[in-house]
Amino acid sequence: MVRRYAKPVVFLLCLLPAAWLVAGIIALQSGDATSVAARALGANPVEKIQDTLGIWGLRLLLATLSVTPLRVLLGWPKLYLFRRMLGLFAFFYIAMHFLWYLFVDQAFDWVTLAADVVKRPYVTAGFTAFVLLVPLAATSTARAMRRLGRRWQRLHWLVYAAAVLGCVHFWWQVKADIREPALYAGIAALLLGWRVVQTQLRRRALRVASAIPASIRSPPPTVRSSTDSPSSHQPSIAASTGSPTDATATNSGSRWRSDQL
């Protein structure tokens, strides 16, 4: 059900903001400045498109990072099915945001561009976030995940750095009104903070477990087939999935994995 119906719906929803922009650009180029899509681009279409691509990139990046917490808190395991898609859409919008800046806003002005990346901290932050996401998008396939094994997990921790840098990029870019970037930074802090707390809880559980003599410890859970816990093998741009059940399953029940966040 989820795979068949919900995924295509979410896919189309993620595509909507981009489709709206494309409709506006087509209307403008064909001289139809009075159409709804063209008017939505306002008096400064270049800026509006730049900002819209950026904000959707950040929103989808945070949506990707909220999959695991929501899965655990809502007890709705199938949410993992959306994680890779959300992550790749986040990358799509961020890449378009960067390319728009590069080819349209700066119009191939490489000197200004290079100066911007070096001299302007908000550009440096945004550019770094984009660069960090490239290997994650490139290793989002099931094959890459299998090939990289445990290193895949480590690599995909970069998404946390990208999310923080994305918020910083937004914050440093506004002139005076920090309310909107503060909202996004707050959400990012919640999502990352939840993971820190979960890690601490697991470490404590592990310490307690190892303090109990082996003779009275319950037998380790058996390794379940990958269909029970496909999430840990589900390729994603975000770092891994991380409910305790997945963690034990992928590790033969030997110990909690703190990197499963």
Partner: peptide
């Protein structure tokens, strides 16, 4: 935070 060397004229026939 940004260059002042060029500007975008609002409403220009080529909006780019």
């Amino acid at each position: 935070r940004w260059s002042q060397k060029t500007e975008r004229r609002i409403g220009s026939s080529n909006f780019l």
